[in-house]
Amino acid sequence: MQPSPARVAAIVLTGGASSRMGRHKPALAVGGRSIVARILDAVAGWPVVVVGSDAGVPERTPVVTEEPPGGGPVAGIAAGWDALIERPYAAGPTPRPPDVVVVLAGDLPLLTRAHLESLVRAARHGRVAVTRSSTGPNWLCAAWPAPLLTDRLAAVGSPEGVSVRRLLAGVPSVEVVDASDVATDVDTPEELEDARRRVEGPGV
């Protein structure tokens, strides 16, 4: 018997300071669309919530704020998860929560659905699936089994200031190789221009 399709939801974090870029990264344009809009294209059809700033976020996309604002990525993940579990995931009288939660930074302009589906498949074995690109592991391009995420958020208590490394402490994980570097983030103006060249061609 084939396993049933995973119910997948996504949390996109846009609350970072963007200090090295000097501008709010998720709202910057790549290929004629904001970075955060491109990420939302990759998760299209899945329940999604953006946590942090709504700059560059398409209309009708749910946006919430972490508590406290600027409380860090784990505070954002916790706020996103709380918002997601309040939404129905299936028709009928008994809404079901997702099986897998994809957690994404808001600065991934080249992200593809194919890579996310690879993460989801790996996470269905009870492990956190973490992207490994040429620059190393990216813990904010990862897929979590929902029960595992729930347990870890409860274990860390107040999420303010908690690092993703601490959230992952002792958690079974697997790396999913990103050979094409589609999950590379952009932290500097130079990395932004490189992403634009990859999408738009060398004339930008």
Rank of each mutant, 00 (worst) to 15 (best):
A105E: 12
V171T: 14
V103Y: 06
T14Q: 07
P73G: 02
A183M: 07
L108K: 02
P68T: 03
R166F: 04
E160S: 07
R197F: 06
V51Y: 14
L108V: 07
V43Q: 02
G52H: 14
T184I: 13
P26Y: 05
P5H: 07
V64S: 04
S19G: 06
R113G: 00
E67R: 15
V162M: 05
A155K: 11
G70F: 08
R198D: 01
I35E: 04
T184C: 05
G170R: 06
E117A: 05
S173P: 00
W144D: 02
V51P: 13
L140V: 11
S19F: 15
T184M: 11
A183C: 11
S118P: 00
A10R: 03
G76N: 02
G71Q: 11
G45D: 11
C141L: 10
S133I: 14
V100L: 07
V130P: 00
P93E: 15
L84N: 01
A17H: 15
S173A: 14
R196P: 10
V36Y: 11
P109A: 00
D185S: 12
A105M: 07
A78S: 11
A155P: 08
V57H: 02
A91L: 15
P97C: 09
W46S: 02
D185A: 11
G201W: 10
T188H: 04
S134E: 08
L108A: 01
V182N: 01
G16L: 08
G56S: 09
A42E: 08
A129T: 13
A195C: 05
G72A: 06
G170Q: 07
I35S: 01
I35A: 01
R38A: 01
T150M: 12
A155S: 13
V103K: 05
I77L: 04
E190L: 09
G72T: 13
V120I: 11
A6N: 05
E175M: 09
L111I: 10
D99A: 00
L140M: 12
G201H: 09
P202S: 13
V57E: 03
G106P: 12
G72M: 08
I77F: 03
D181E: 12
G45M: 11
V101T: 14
L168I: 02
S4F: 07
V64I: 14
A154E: 15
V48S: 10
G71Y: 11
E67F: 09
L140I: 10
L119Q: 04
A105H: 11
V176K: 05
V57L: 03
D178R: 04
T14R: 06
R121C: 01
P5K: 09
A75L: 10
A122P: 01
A122M: 10
E67Y: 10
R198N: 00
W81M: 04
L13P: 07
T94Y: 15
V128W: 12
V156F: 10
S18C: 13
I11H: 10
I35P: 03
V204R: 08
G72S: 06
A146P: 01
P47D: 09
L110K: 03
L149A: 04
V49L: 08
V48P: 00
W144V: 06
P202C: 09
P3F: 03
S18Y: 13
G71L: 08
T94P: 00
P159W: 07
V176P: 00
L40S: 06
G80F: 02
T61R: 06
E200M: 12
